[in-house]
Lab assay of single mutants.
Amino acid sequence: MGKSNSKLKPEVVEELTRKTYFTEKEVQQWYKGFIKDCPSGQLDAAGFQKIYKQFFPFGDPTKFATFVFNVFDENKDGRIEFSEFIQALSVTSRGTLDEKLRWAFKLYDLDNDGYITRNEMLDIVDAIYQMVGNTVELPEEENTPEKRVDRIFAMMDKNADGKLTLQEFQEGSKADPSIVQALSLYDGLV
């Protein structure tokens, strides 16, 4: 993909415009910024974590950033290329609610087996709590990752089998306004 070129080839721009919710001009602008920050044309896990640390200076986002990195890194080569970056950004910032929920499901399904187990969710929720640090005051019933996961599973795990399917996750998330709101945070920002 033209590693350190400051412009993408027209056919690449066209393809990314088809695969995302961005215009050709927006794709070019994002590429310019991506190459400025990642001259090699790729972003590794350490660089990704560094970006998260800028956004969450009062907590430790390392663990959460690693989980997000793994979802962005579609081809699992340990690096995020621009096409992976822009497609994930498109879903998280401008995707439909169902697209965002499928993306979030992939984030929580750490072993990619098609289910979110209690332990997988606990890993992610714990990482989120570490990331936000003491900057967020949580209600008593959610002031630990374990309590939050218990509440989520009580609401979403309809067949009580200890794991969530994509359908259970989507339906449960849509029924909880706070989850829908959290997924909409990026709307309109890009």
Rank of each mutant, 00 (worst) to 15 (best):
L122I: 03
Q87F: 03
K3P: 07
N5M: 04
L110E: 09
R148L: 09
A88V: 14
S173T: 07
E14A: 14
P39Y: 02
Q54A: 13
D113H: 13
Q29E: 10
R102V: 00
Q167Y: 10
G78I: 10
G162A: 09
S4T: 06
R18I: 13
Q87H: 10
Q49N: 03
S173Y: 08
G78Q: 12
K50P: 01
T17A: 12
I124C: 04
W30K: 00
E81K: 08
V27F: 15
N5H: 15
G188Q: 10
G172L: 14
D73A: 13
Y52I: 08
K19W: 14
A65S: 09
Q170P: 07
K53T: 08
N134C: 02
Y31E: 15
F34R: 03
I116R: 00
L185H: 08
L110D: 11
D37A: 04
Y21S: 15
A46I: 12
T144M: 07
Y129D: 13
N143T: 09
L185S: 07
A46E: 12
E11A: 08
E146Q: 12
K32G: 02
K19Y: 11
R151D: 07
L166I: 09
L89Q: 05
K32W: 14
L110S: 08
D123C: 05
P177T: 00
K50T: 08
F85Y: 04
R18S: 06
M156E: 07
F85M: 12
S6F: 02
L138Q: 01
L138C: 02
V190D: 07
N119H: 11
E140Y: 02
K63L: 13
T96C: 08
L89R: 01
R18L: 12
T66I: 10
D176A: 05
N5C: 14
G47Y: 13
S184Y: 05
L183V: 06
L185F: 11
N134L: 13
Q181N: 11
G188H: 07
N143V: 04
I51V: 12
S83C: 03
S93F: 02
L138V: 08
V149L: 07
N119P: 00
S173R: 01
T66S: 08
A175K: 04
Y31S: 15
D44A: 07
V27A: 15
L107Y: 08
E99L: 15
G172V: 03
I35N: 07
Q130K: 11
D150I: 11
K158W: 10
T17V: 03
N112K: 10
E137I: 04
I128H: 03
I80D: 11
K106L: 11
L110P: 08
E141V: 00
K3E: 05
G78Y: 12
L185R: 05
P10K: 04
T62G: 05
Q29P: 14
G95K: 01
A104W: 02
E137G: 09
